[in-house]
């Protein structure tokens, strides 16, 4: 099956200015994204993982131009979204939807579910007004709610149900790509499993493509086809799901995976406990950004930035950004 490119992100940078001094001048920048590139193919689920502040949400927001990117391009079905007018961008909002973590934050509490969905369809002009009510009821059934709940307010629903409303709203405009930013993170596991299954069923039924942002590697392994690992505004590894979990190459990916507690008291643990905290994105370390915490860091790591690359031990489109992939695999690097 030929893969069809849906979204291509190239050299994306997002610098947020830090104002300071009594003149309120820009004194510095938070380098939230510092040149990331990746492609999303039609019908697949690509996840972005990494620790708090590494730039996951910023990536999603920059793609949707909820924030104007500092540099780089975001090509959606052949159109560079960073080059078009705000007006033209509005049309693309129909194809690119986002679901957030906190359903409360993205749902107007004074609007009934029906009016919320109606508004979304009205803005994107998806259906004639007289056909919308039927569609709303159908959408509610699709996401596992009841048609009679259309006239209720968000506070009358549980967290999991509000997340379903968020999904129904995204679906109401027939999108191609849905960015899910920690969409199931706030849910209890029993409800989370319901919503994850729903997202998978909807993908099969409507051929949806997901860009799935999450810090939960269990959820990510479950839902993804491919995975992007970020650290401090950069991509450090990108691979298909199996390769990433079974054959991780970047020292950060390995540490991240090893740090997750396993729900099995008999599991063999080879934990790599990283020292210290993630450095500030205002003044990220030179060379490899991970060098302050990496057990293998050398002088080269402190000065030269490693680029994403592949080795003979890596299958498919698996890439990692580390100078010493081969040496670490061969066990010839000295660990500190």
């Amino acid at each position: 099956m030929a893969k069809k490119e849906l979204l291509k992100v190239e050299g994306l940078k997002q610098y947020f200015p830090i104002k300071g001094g009594f003149l309120g001048r820009t004194v510095n920048h938070v380098k939230a994204l510092d040149g990331i590139s990746f492609t999303v193919y039609e019908g697949e689920t690509v996840s972005i993982v990494g620790e708090s502040g590494c730039g996951k949400s910023t990536t999603g927001r920059a793609i949707l131009r909820l924030e104007e990117p500092t540099e780089g391009s975001v090509t959606f079905q052949g159109t560079d979204l960073t080059k078009i007018s705000t007006r033209e961008m509005r049309k693309f909002r129909k194809d690119l939807q986002i679901i957030f973590q906190d359903p409360y934050a993205s749902i107007n509490p004074r609007q009934t579910v029906a009016s919320l969905l109606n508004e979304a369809m009205h803005i994107q002009n998806v259906l004639p007004a007289n056909e919308r009510r039927a569609r709303i009821e159908e959408l509610l059934e699709t996401v596992g709610l009841r048609p009679y709940q259309a006239d209720r307010y968000p506070h009358e629903f549980s967290g999991g149900q509000r997340q379903r409303i968020g999904i129904a709203r995204a679906l109401s405009v027939d999108p191609k790509l849905i960015i899910c930013d920690e969409a199931v993170s706030a849910l209890d596991v029993s409800i989370q499993a319901q919503v994850l299954n729903l997202l998978e069923e909807l993908q099969d039924e409507y051929g949806l493509t997901y860009l799935f942002i999450s810090h939960d590697l269990g959820v990510v392994r479950h839902i993804s086809d491919r995975i992007i690992v970020m650290y401090l505004g950069k991509i450090v590894e990108i691979a298909d799901k199996t390769s990433l979990f079974e054959n991780p190459q970047h020292p950060y990916t390995k540490a991240l995976l090893s740090a997750i507690p396993v729900p099995d008291p008999d599991a063999v643990k080879n934990r790599i406990v990283l020292k210290g905290d993630v450095p500030s994105p205002i003044d990220p370390p030179a060379g490899c950004r991970f060098h302050t915490r990496c057990p293998f860091a050398t002088d080269k790591c402190r000065t030269e930035e490693p680029l994403l690359r592949t080795t003979s031990a890596m299958k498919g489109e698996h890439e990692a950004a580390c100078h010493y992939i081969e040496e670490i695999a061969a066990g010839t690097m000295i660990e500190k």
């Binding site: 319901q194 299954n197 269990g218 997750i260 729900p263």
Partner: peptide, 19 residues
Amino acid sequence: NSLPRHDIEQEKLIPIKGM
């Protein structure tokens, strides 16, 4: 059964119905 695991490959999650 609802818990998505990072350490093993799972077929499908079996959620608890309702809330």
